[in-house]
Design a protein around this nucleic acid. Structure first.
Lengths: 342, 342
DNA sequence: TTGTAAGCGTTATCAT
DNA sequence: ATGATAACGCTTACAA
């Protein structure tokens, strides 16, 4: 028994404030909520002063029982490393406004049973809405029919085309990468991508092809598909350099792949970017900033995806029909030394 | 077949269940909560069957108003990249049990005002407790006196030594790294660390010194302090190799630093690990797995920190005094090729 | 074994 | 301008 603990004071309730201010709870409520013309200025001031002094914080749970809004949303993800979910969460927080809406973060870990538990808990907590973040950019199973509140899918769309979603534009990302290299005067462009079962890999390749076509260029060799990691970047680059000496640019499928590409290109004695220019996808800080030379990379705007998802959810809560069910966020090219610089 | 297909517009309440089962709400409550000897078996079964059929989920908010436990905790962090917070969150989720406790994740972004907003919101939501994840391993301002519920600090302790905390053991981490290298027969060991204002940097250096002393070895040159990034790893390594040729091992202060070290060592024509063995800190997958050779690195066990923090919080909620206010999680060395292999 | 009623903290409605 | 009262969904004495 240690009574030296922090005083477990009972939380201050509206009653306490009202009593100390010498008014009824309902008047106190009006005073604190600034009901126009329903409470005198003097009373309002007195109540507020007391509330301040007592450190009163309204019980959001009790409030929620009236407003039919709890001011909470659930964000459920399978992305363990947080590569996508955290920026998306941050964007959502921004859009909702810190303090106004609170976010339950739930990690499904790719396990449908875990996900079900979380869903049930979130429904029980009466969240106003749900944001579901997929683990990869391909369509994932819908959960919308299992919950009584609006759901927005972020990063990966739902398999049900009726569902709302905010997704990155991978095709445009491919175009951006290729357009930049063409603009820099490169003509012999190769593409080393990742896992071909990812729609992202296919869409980026398609975007690149479109741009090369439009400029009458032909890609150097077919797109090499493999894994999303550095060893594959190294292996594919070795293969490329062995068979095609006439290459003046490489597009890497992810920053991890591109780190492998850079290492191998430099080891072969070629200079970046003078001999070979490099453009990458992801713009992931821990891999980007340390690279030598620094990496030009396409940023997918995860924070923006989070913001838009939050907006879509808010609109849905207000009963506004969305302009479009699946919204696309346009990526941005961040230019650094690997494609232009010293 | 699942009868609960239709999206319920109004949530199913206990009343609905009770009405359909032909009992009063209180009886339904007892039936669902398995109150021993207060409800007949037949009634219990009937109520449960109806609840199941209607897809009834109890309103956790309403329940919370009785139990004095909301089954929610707040996790507040300043760690933007999620390098620490997400593993810690995952560990905490594990320990709490998915579905039983839900976690509000709040990003303070190093801004005290934002943090205050979040704190206020969490208090208003009546969270049972708080886990505060610092941005760096040094003591951070206490928030415990500002909230009426228990707080556990994870990763970084509180400035108030009365507060509960779970932190990594950086001294032991340094020892582990050095012990391993000594065990591998290395005698000329150098240390390239990060920002010297981090206690983590100092404590690891101290751990290394202890072990070298114990073995009658002297560190090759003073610890080089700088930044936690690759460029510093490169610069420091160049400096080291220029001035000290007799080096057979380097301890890198973080995986990012170590990536820079490896690149520079190999560029100098030396082999890893035959000429120079390398050990690192962090064991951060995106940097570790792609490295060539793969990196031996000290893992701080963030998930375990999250688990312990959750346990401490649970214990505090149950009124149990902690065995110790500041609990330490022992790191583990993960051995890969940079210190031993082919 | 079951039902009735009170109450958790707040807000909306309706008197006063 | 203020206050009494009911209601949100649930649990729990207490009464039947």
């Amino acid at each position: 028994m240690n009574e030296t603990e922090a005083p477990l004071r009972r939380r201050v309730t509206l009653r306490d404030v009202a009593a100390l201010a010498g008014v009824s709870p309902s008047t106190a409520s009006k005073a604190l909520n600034d009901r126009p013309g329903q409470v005198s200025t003097s009373t309002k001031e007195r109540v507020r002063e007391v509330a301040e002094r007592l450190g009163f914080t309204p019980n959001a749970l009790a409030q929620a029982m009236h407003s039919s809004r709890t001011g909470t949303v659930g964000l459920i993800t399978d992305d363990l490393e947080g590569r996508f979910s955290l920026p998306i969460l941050m964007g959502a927080e921004d859009a909702f406004g810190a303090g106004r809406t609170s976010v339950f973060l739930c990690d499904g870990r790719g396990d449908p049973i875990r996900e079900s538990h979380h869903l049930k808990a979130l429904v029980g907590r009466d969240v106003d809405g749900l944001i579901v973040v997929g683990a990869r950019p391909d369509a994932r199973p819908s959960v919308s029919h299992r919950v009584p509140m609006p759901v927005v899918y972020a990063y990966a769309p739902s398999e049900d085309s009726q569902d709302l979603a905010v997704v990155p534009d991978n095709t445009r990302a491919g175009e951006l990468a290729a357009e930049h290299l063409v603009a820099m005067g490169r003509t012999r462009i190769a593409h080393i991508s990742g896992d071909p079962t990812y729609s992202a890999a296919q869409n980026r390749a398609a975007g690149i092809a479109t741009v090369l076509d439009a400029h009458g260029l032909e890609q150097v060799g077919p797109t090499q598909f493999g894994a999303w990691d550095e060893p594959w970047g190294r292996a594919a680059t070795r293969n490329l350099l062995e068979h095609r000496t006439a290459v003046d640019a490489i597009i890497g499928g992810s920053d991890r792949i591109t780190r492998g590409i850079i290492e191998t290109v430099r080891a072969s004695g070629r200079e970046i970017p003078s001999d070979i220019a490099i453009v990458s996808f992801d713009n992931w800080e821990p891999l980007i900033s340390g690279s030598q030379p620094s990496l030009t990379s396409v940023d997918f705007g995860f924070k923006q995806i989070g913001r838009r998802a939050a907006h879509l959810l808010s609109a849905a809560l207000d009963g506004q029909p969305p302009a479009q069910r699946v919204e696309t966020v346009t990526p941005k090219l961040v230019i650094r030394n690997s494609s232009t610089g010293t």
